[in-house]
Design a binder for these strands. Sequence first.
DNA 1: CGGCAAACCTGCGAGC
DNA 2: TGCTCGCAGGTTTGCC
Length: 275
Amino acid sequence: MPELPEVETVRLGLGPHLEGRRITQITLNRADLRVPFPQGLVQSLQGQVVRSIARRAKYLLFQMSNDAVLIAHLGMSGTMVLVPQAGYVPRTHDHVLIDFNHELRLVFNDPRRFGLIVLGEASGLAQHPLLAHLGPEPLGDDFNASYLKQALGRRQSSIKQAIMDQAVVVGVGNIYASEALFRAKIHPQIPALNVKNPLFALVEAIKQVLLEAIDSGGSTLRDYVRSTGDAGYFQHQFAVYGRDGAPCISCKSPIQRLVQGGRATYFCNNCQKVM
DNA sequence: CGGCAAACCTGCGAGC
DNA sequence: TGCTCGCAGGTTTGCC
């Protein structure tokens, strides 16, 4: 499900409600998601106060008062929704419940179980195996055209697959890769090393589309909802994603669909020609 | 190291 | 109504 804008929307929704709150109870309704829940997960977190909720790439990082960090990933279909404990109605795939004082309950639901919840430590968190290999944040200053030029300089794979590689830049998934390439007028099948001047436009396109999507609360296609349970609405702004056969918003020629690395890519063959 | 297919898992819509 | 197939916001693994 979630790419950076969706994860960031969840983070922004959870932070004000959970920061400063104490975990009073944790319920694990199964033993694992993509990976087993760590031994000691409950003991490490129970009774601790959430100091802050951060995000790195598509990971949510709950910094606890005891230096433990709850690292959560929503996978393809995960959601984190806050509900009043009293009003909670169990649903299929509610795998983890985290209760806070003042009767708040954080519900982690994930039908496909591609998400994960593990533990890290605040000190040296960047060295955690899940985080160590990640590239720069797309909204930071260190993600810029000169960085991207050196990062892609020897890449034979397509530009679309390259920008979805979390070692190149984090947070860009299948939707926003297509959308950013459309905005930068770059054909998705061009080998990454062949993209020269448009790299500046691509950097700007990635930043813009992610920021606009965050402003819209993310994109809801199937599973994703905000921490309030409400849908995002950036899906109504898609220029190309899921629009194969429909007219390009710029030139009216039909949007094309192809498959790259097993993932659907949408693009305008007329507008996206830049090498 | 690079690139790519397959694997992980459930649900939904399309087509027969 | 009910089956099968294909497809879905991600990441890892194993094979060339």
